Simulated assay, not measured.
Amino acid sequence: MRERAVQRQDRLLSLVRRRGSARVADLADQLGVSPVTVRRDVEALTGKGLLDRAHGSVSWPRQRDRPGGGRGPDAGDLVLGLLAPSATYYFADVIRGAHEAAALAGARLILRICDYRPEEDPARADGLLAAGAEGLLVAPGWRGPEDQAAYSDWIAELSVPVVLLERGAPPGGPLAGLDRVCSDHTHGVLLALRHLTGQGHGAPLLVARADSPTALAVREGYAEALRALGVRRPRPVIGSVPADRDPEGFERAVQELRSAVSSGAATAALVHNDVDAIRMVQRLAELGVRVPRDLALVAYDDEVAALADTPLTAVAPPKREVGRQAARLLLERLREGAEAAAEPAPRRHLALLPTLRVRTSCGAGAAAGGDAGG
């Protein structure tokens, strides 16, 4: 896949920022492009004030490393940078919330997307800093613990205030002392399971992916929620995968769920995420399993759950509020720095509670009592 100019320029800025200065010829070698392409990029970046250029080399502008430096074109406003793994689905609302809070405070928000490629996160962050960001909201593109272990240190080394978005950090790790704002997915899973068991169902099954921090948090929350409710795990988590990327793997998950329902082992399930839940409901109907007649189902994320043929009850993480609270916290940190506060406020780990939006996908079985609102 051909690299986009903005991605290449972010990598160029990252190289220059780490070295302080670099020759154009060396940058061309490092980036794997022609010197002509690098000169064109350098011209564009120096024209925006993001680099200084002289005699075949470029350097990082000194004013960007000074306290209070790095202001964007709107000189009177604070500039916040947001690094997200995606601008669609789950993170679209997070971004909207951050933008709303920044605009309300008279600040600008600028955005970079890493497309779940954590190895590119440092370059994207450098692009934000070069564009004038004075503090960063960071949702790294991790997919699992191995990514977090390999691509965390750079965040702790940033010289500007940072707030993590929808990402946790292990105690004692390099990111444990950073501000962060997250959805409490354990609470969200508990809401779903309590609702289903309250309708008379046995322990619900969990059908979930394992390809993102949210998916892994839902899996961990499932085990904790079962313990809190005092019910035994009915069987191992049914691992799901995106139907468009792995049709065979998705079909295996559907068949495993169908078998559990047909055998009477389960009458309820929580499915992460909405898209998978909608496709599973459609495929289960083809196999003779109807929602809600045979299976009470709750989706997790509530992005498109209400649009299913049978509107799906869904856990709704407070995505927009996560963005708002994170932006407000970052603005507070920036103001503390500007005022040189002798004792800055303690770092904060904010966990916001999801809600359960009850629709018509939970009325399965006689035990549900025909509750139209379930």
Rank of each mutant, 00 (worst) to 15 (best):
E146G: 04
A139P: 00
V160P: 00
A130N: 04
A130Q: 08
A150I: 05
A123G: 04
L128K: 05
V160T: 08
P140M: 06
P122C: 08
W142E: 00
V138C: 10
D153C: 11
P161M: 14
E120K: 09
A130G: 15
G135V: 13
R124M: 13
L136T: 04
P118C: 05
W154P: 00
G141Y: 04
V162D: 01
C114S: 15
S159C: 11
A131I: 10
E120P: 02
P122H: 09
E119D: 14
D153P: 09
A123H: 02
R124F: 09
D115G: 07
E146T: 13
P161K: 12
D115H: 14
V162S: 02
V160N: 06
P140E: 02
A133R: 01
G144E: 09
G135T: 11
P140N: 06
E120G: 12
P122D: 10
A130M: 11
D121E: 00
Y151M: 04
Y116Q: 05
R143M: 05
E146Y: 03
V162M: 07
R143Y: 01
L136I: 13
A123E: 03
L136N: 04
R117N: 08
L158P: 00
P145V: 13
Y116D: 08
V163A: 03
E120V: 12
C114K: 05
R143A: 07
I113Y: 05
L137M: 02
